[in-house]
Write a protein that binds this DNA or RNA. Sequence first.
DNA 1: TGTTTCAGTGAACAAGTGTTGACAAACGAT
DNA 2: ATCGTTTGTCAACACTTGTTCACTGAAACA
Lengths: 227, 227
Amino acid sequence: MSMKKTLRAATAGDLPGGARGARKQLTRERLLDAALTLMSAGNSFPGLSLREVTREAGVVPTAFYRHFRDMDELGLALVEECGLTLRRLLREVRKAGVPTTDIIRHSVAIYWQYVRAHPRHFRTAASERHGGSPTMRQAIRTEVEHFVREMAQDLRMLGYRADLPSSALEMICTLVVNTMLNAASDILDLPPDQPQLAREMEASFVAQIRLIFLGAAQWRADGGGAV
Amino acid sequence: MSMKKTLRAATAGDLPGGARGARKQLTRERLLDAALTLMSAGNSFPGLSLREVTREAGVVPTAFYRHFRDMDELGLALVEECGLTLRRLLREVRKAGVPTTDIIRHSVAIYWQYVRAHPRHFRTAASERHGGSPTMRQAIRTEVEHFVREMAQDLRMLGYRADLPSSALEMICTLVVNTMLNAASDILDLPPDQPQLAREMEASFVAQIRLIFLGAAQWRADGGGAV
DNA sequence: TGTTTCAGTGAACAAGTGTTGACAAACGAT
DNA sequence: ATCGTTTGTCAACACTTGTTCACTGAAACA
């Protein structure tokens, strides 16, 4: 009966314990990986074709449907993966502490290195954040909002600007995150053998973040201020 | 001979005086317009097909080659058009004056209205700035750099932070422009009948710009500061 | 051990793609 | 008025695309 069928499928197929589920998840990851590689090679997601992805992954086109209904579903999985990478980044920077000048420079250095370590995830995130299909755009937007909220909570726990409401902290973090993602795109477009340009860009990035926190230190909730 | 040919082509074809050049430029604009429309309808540029564009423009596919060598060339023309729109925006905001709190609010209001008046240009610019083909990305980057430099010059002429070097002013303007373009993308993704959300978003945008200028007012070239 | 379930294969399809070449008609220059 | 130039059209090509169906073989279960 159909009940029996679904039950078996649940026990054998979904759980990664068996060799069967492991093999499935492996080719699933190969598909995601192929898409990621193709995207960071110049193509943008809506420009990818299903066959192209399967070709790069080394499977026959029809095998695609065993893992995703269509390309949009793969896109969402991709976004989720990028979000995970972002989350790990936050966990790594979290040790840095309150953003004073030196700590900003330090955090930026971590970020820099992190972006270079996960170029495809960051290129994808930056690429599909505003471009691409509205579906993917919305998914990334949600992911970024989560990230911003988490970052704001971190600042709060560190006692940073305890007088400000959460909305203000989130506004500040939004600015920071936008600057981060813009910078990531810039980093990844650098010719790989231009350390001079890279240093300049990093310095400019540090300056921007510094300026933001300079403004944040002066921020008044009521809209007053020196400007 | 070929000399004669090129001469005639130069006098008759390129100059928009005759009815011939006018007709050509008209369908050229129809092609650009079609691409712009399709892009703001959910497609991203690399997802557009040549035939799709010509269909939307109301011409036969082969007519495309009379105007552009391939889609990339059309993309570059599109970027140029977007850059022109940005330039006009700057000319309009230029009357606003030195960025104090009220003037920021005013400028943002102008910007808001401007984005809503040219949704397709801004969606395209935001969309292809980080996504899309590297060719188009580079073109937009150049266009944005021009814009930033112009804006920095404006600030300088207004006597804003006359003590800072141009590089610092440009860094500040880069931050502003990035924030602007991010906001544009957010605006255009709003459901059209949510004035409450729109107001909140505009307020957040004003706050971000305000915070940037708050930081800019405190900025010291040597890297010192309150933070 | 025998049966079922299912990830991956292979062939085939209708539809859409970029690009080519020859051709018609309108225009500009002579 | 004539002739070359040029914009746009038509027909056709060699491919690629997404999706379908029946299939194979091996793992998971009984």
